[in-house]
Amino acid sequence: MGTSAVVVVAVFFLGMGLYGLVAPAALVRPFALVADRPESRSEVRAVYGGFGVATAAVLGATLVLPGMRPGVVLTVAVMLLGMAAGRVISRLVDRPVALYPIWFYCGVEVVAALVLVLPTIVLA
């Protein structure tokens, strides 16, 4: 697993997480969600904010504890593919949607998952 791939994906999650903690309403606005109540902002801060920062922290920990890397990288890659699958399922169930934000982020999630696992597959 390439260290640079882990760093790039960790930085993505850290950025998303910090943005979710600081500006929850702005983070979900492109998805036509409105975080205008304490309950909705709490949910965004938990799912996008706290979860994103925690994911970044676990990925970052693999830089100093390389024995953790295979399991953490596989787990994060599967999480990302699960997010992308949720978007595909939504597309099959719901009406068609524009490229941004749904398909854009689906692509980001698939690419990030592949960036994490391809070095392992290629080296195997």
Rank of each mutant, 00 (worst) to 15 (best):
V110F: 05
F104R: 00
G17E: 02
I89L: 07
S42R: 14
Y100V: 12
L92E: 00
V111Y: 00
S90P: 08
R69D: 00
V93K: 02
V72I: 14
V34P: 04
A84W: 11
E109S: 07
M83I: 14
F13C: 07
V22H: 15
A56G: 15
T55Y: 13
A124V: 05
G86F: 04
V97K: 15
A57C: 13
P66A: 01
G82D: 01
A25L: 03
V73M: 10
V88F: 06
P38N: 12
S40G: 08
G2P: 00
V73W: 11
V53P: 04
A54N: 02
L27P: 07
A26F: 04
V7N: 04
C106G: 05
G50H: 01
V34I: 13
R95A: 03
G17F: 03
V111S: 11
Y105L: 09
W103L: 15
M16I: 14
M1T: 01
V78Q: 08
V78E: 13
V11N: 06
Y100F: 12
D94W: 01
A23L: 12
F13Y: 15
S90E: 12
G15V: 15
A56R: 09
P38I: 09
V8E: 02
G82M: 08
L27Q: 01
L123M: 13
I121C: 02
V97Y: 10
L21R: 14
F51M: 13
V34N: 05
A46N: 12
V88C: 04
V72H: 13
S90Y: 01
P24C: 12
V76E: 12
L14W: 01
V47S: 05
G15C: 09
V76R: 03
F104D: 10
P38L: 13
V111W: 09
A26N: 07
T55P: 09
L33P: 11
V47C: 02
L33W: 14
G60M: 08
V47K: 02
V117Q: 03
V8K: 00
R91I: 03
F12H: 04
V111R: 12
V122R: 02
L65I: 13
A5E: 07
P119E: 10
A84D: 14
V122H: 02
V9F: 06
V115T: 07
M1N: 04
A112V: 05
A98R: 15
R87A: 10
F31V: 08
G107F: 07
L92A: 03
V28P: 14
R41Y: 09
R95M: 04
V122A: 10
F12I: 03
R87K: 10
V6F: 02
V117H: 01
G67M: 02
T75L: 15
I121A: 11
L27N: 06
V6C: 08
A124N: 10
A112L: 13
R95K: 11
S90I: 06
A25V: 06
V73P: 06
V97C: 10
V111Q: 10
A61N: 12
M83L: 09
G60E: 14
L118H: 01
G2V: 00
L118E: 03
A46Q: 08
P101S: 12
L116D: 01
P66L: 02
A56T: 09
G17P: 04
V64C: 01
L81T: 02
S4V: 04
